[in-house]
Amino acid sequence: MEQKKSKLSRRGFFKAGSIIVGGIAVAAAFTPFDGILFATEPPKGKGKWYGIGIDINKCIGCGKCANACKLENNVPKEPFYFRSWVEQYTIKNDGSILVESPNGGIDGFKQTVPDQDIFKSFFVPKMCNHCAKSPCVQVCPVGATFETPEGIVLVDENYCIGCRYCVQACPYGCRFINPEKGTAEKCTLCIHRLEKGLQPACFEVCPTEARIFGDLNDPGSKINYFLKNHTCMVIKPNLNTGAKLYYNALSSEVR
């Protein structure tokens, strides 16, 4: 009797064990490695998970986005503080690269290279990438910057100590210290507008609809349509920041 019981339990042990091991093996074989698909972090959780798309082919470099961002968010007017700005890349026939962003593009762009010297030229709007593995969040010593459950990277200006470590850690130059407040500041994806059902200011004023945003967790969202139908790329994918700002037609010169 005693022996039989122990035999049973041993069999039970092997059975359970093989189920667990087999299960892990099967799960490992069938779990897609989505990291490669996005070159970034796959969408997390079940709620909203915001992603942004910018179509470089559509950007006309009017700088309305940069201007609207400053007006909507009371960003200091001086040309050293931008949550959103536009760069013009000009690749010349001799192969040299010229990058310009006079006042972040707010006053418009003047073509500085004559047509005959230009190989190609294009505008690149820049803003916070709302990285899923944000280097800026990682380095904040006090937890004054964080990713919300919806995937927006925010700053808590009532808790920020102004150590500027996050400014150093952002590979995209998207952060600055507000000279009046002494705390870090960055794009909030206009969370105060999203919450009221409005678009972020820069999306609102884009005349060519070069910018779109949406829920990466929703298969029918604009952003997923955009990702599906364009050849998208993030800036500096080698840094593995989990950037969620996807560019269509991004040239390799853009950094």
Binding site: F80, E87, L98, V99, R164, V167, R175
Partner: peptide
């Protein structure tokens, strides 16, 4: 070219 926010040394 430097990013506009990089003009200031932090």
């Amino acid at each position: 070219y430097v990013y506009p926010n990089e003009i200031e040394l932090n």
